[in-house]
Design a protein around this nucleic acid. Structure first.
Length: 513
RNA sequence: GAUUCCGUAGCUCAGCUGGUAGAGCAAUACACUUUUAAUGUAUGGGUCCUGGGUUCGAGUCCCAGCGGGAUCACCA
């Protein structure tokens, strides 16, 4: 990180000294009172000119057009960019023109944060601007900001598009790429829309442990850490499901949590080692109720975010108006392969996979084979929201057996744009059945399935006290955000996506050597 | 993990079959009191990702490494 300073960086450090010599603190402590935002001015000035005669606003200088004894500049606050007009004889009333000739023209740079006072007016060319009567440096920028120019039509020139730069220095990305900022504002809106929905329906937001002694509730490789005082291994959670169900046992009827989960697996366009899942569990409900609720929730999010239930994603238009299509997984496979796998055993399924040229191995059981067929041949076809229902029991160890279909469970996955967005069950609440399912997982583990689940005896104990019939669901929030903000990569909906470190950090262990 | 593409000024990029490194913006200086991708003139700025190799000579060719993207594998 100790790089030599560039020419421009050295210059800006020299300017710091110049400013101090003039008695100007480049990093003043005092509050700067702001009474308006750029957005407010642009939206309301024409209608209500009287209110913008004495304004105070702060922001970052994004461009400067110097015209001799006057200058135009664009400043950007948290809402918008707005033009300011700085005239020498207005900010320097007397003989001394230092403030304009030296401070403004020589010592202020792109990227500096300033506060200005003045009044709003419209220029000859019709742009709403601020006529500055005084300005104050609030923070000096020492690193040159990449310059992105935008013309009247909004076309950007020399836009910083290098993903590495954008993800590593997200703070810069946010400053110079307004669209990026908008995406994250939308993400926040999506989450608060969901929270509103849940709270308005009587749900209780809870927090459950991130550090767990048994990484349960899903099948995935966990991150392992160690607690010194207890001298025990702890895992970062891969899911929070089993804890939320304990709370249903405890007597809450509807609990939810936005859970940051951690999985020690590969990274790509749809996977980050830490990601967010919303799970909620509702007592006395089943998966049919959950489908109806999911439809309502998604429609509400779409309306809150875009004002319409029809949303462009890539080159497609996705419609979130209920009801969504419902297809059993066996019907889905029949539809896209022409093969009825509903009564097949493992050997027959292997034959089918071979016929379809799917790669399989010996550790795969019946459930995984079916899942492979669905994943390869069907999944990508479901562009409009579709519930895929009634999965084989072997692939769903936490799900209640189907009320009248032998060998299946009451489960659905919500597919949108060819990807899984949510996964829901009528929750298994029979403690004996649950114990057997866990034991089956152990057998899978012994067979070589390294993603099979561990047995959580405390969870079994909770079920033995009695859990009401319950339906639960998990939404991949990051993927939902990708969908609703039309972003192709998970990195574009995570403020700080995981990256390999820029510089090799030396650990204490390595230092000892 | 595999394959493939990429890494050149603060930013965006050019640099052919190997011959001492270029443009635009940004920066610096000067001019300009309603401009808007402001304009005009001049100037400075480089570990060509790193390390080896081939060669009289490497930004360019070869090998290895580092970092990133895409595709695939993995991730129910």
């Amino acid at each position: 990180m100790f790089q030599e300073l560039s020419e421009q960086e050295i210059l800006r450090r020299e300017k710091l000294e110049e400013l101090r010599k003039l008695g100007i603190d480049p990093y003043p402590a005092a509050e700067f009172k702001v009474n308006v935002t750029a957005e407010d001015i642009k939206e309301n000035y024409e209608r209500d000119k009287l209110n913008y005669k004495d304004i105070s606003i702060a922001g970052r200088i994004m461009s400067v057009r110097d015209m001799g004894k006057a200058a135009f500049a664009l400043i950007q606050d948290s809402t918008e960019r707005i033009q300011i007009y700085v005239r020498r004889d207005d900010i320097c009333a007397g003989e001394d023109k230092t403030l304009y000739d030296v401070v403004w023209k020589k010592l202020i740079d792109l990227g500096d944060i300033i506060g200005v006072e003045g009044y709003v007016f419209t220029t000859k060319t019709g742009e709403i601007s601020i006529h500055v009567t005084s300005f104050k440096l609030l923070s000096k920028s020492l690193k040159p900001l990449p310059v992105v120019k935008t013309d009247a039509e909004g076309n950007a020139f020399d836009e910083v598009s290098d993903p590495e730069f954008r993800y590593r220095q997200r703070y810069v990305d946010l400053i110079i790429n307004p669209k990026v900022k908008k995406t994250f504002e939308q993400r926040s809106k999506i989450i608060s829309s969901i929270r509103d929905f849940l709270n308005n329906n009587g749900a209780l937001e809870v927090d459950t442990p991130v550090l767990q002694t048994i990484p349960g509730g899903a099948a995935a490789r966990p991150f392992l850490t160690h607690h010194n005082a207890l001298d025990i291994p702890l895992y970062l959670r891969i899911a929070n499901e089993l804890y939320l169900k304990r709370l249903i046992v405890g007597g809450f009827d509807w609990v939810y949590e936005f859970s940051r989960n951690f999985r020690n697996e590969g990274m790509d366009r749809t996977h980050n080692p830490e990601f967010t899942v919303l799970e909620f569990y509702v007592a006395y409900r089943d998966y049919f109720w959950m489908m109806n609720t999911t439809e309502k929730l998604l429609e509400k999010i779409a309306l809150d975010l875009h004002g319409t239930a029809e949303i462009p994603v890539g080159d497609k238009l996705i419609n979130f108006t209920p009801p969504f299509k419902r297809v059993t997984i066996y019907d889905a496979i029949k539809e896209h392969t022409g093969i009825d796998v509903s009564n097949m055993d493992e050997t027959q399924l292997r034959e089918v996979c071979k016929k379809l040229h799917l790669e399989i191995d010996n550790s795969m059981g019946k459930a995984k084979l079916i899942d492979t067929i669905f994943g390869e041949k069907c999944e990508s076809n479901y562009i409009q929201p579709t519930f895929i229902t009634d999965y084989p029991v072997e692939m769903s160890p936490l799900t209640k057996k189907h009320r009248d279909k032998q060998g299946l469970v009451e489960r659905f996955e919500l597919m949108i744009n060819g990807k899984e967005i949510a996964n829901a069950y009528s929750e298994l609440n029979d403690p004996i059945d649950q114990r057997e399912r866990f034991e089956e997982q152990v057998r899978l583990m012994e067979r070589g399935d390294d993603e099979a689940m561990f047995i959580d005896y405390d969870f079994l104990r909770a079920l033995e006290y009695g859990m009401p019939p319950t339906s639960g669901i998990g939404f991949g929030i990051d993927r939902l955000c990708m969908l609703l903000t039309n972003q192709p990569s998970i990195q574009d909906v995570l403020l700080f996506p995981q990256m390999r470190p820029e510089v090799q950090t030396v650990t204490s262990e390595e230092l000892e050597k």
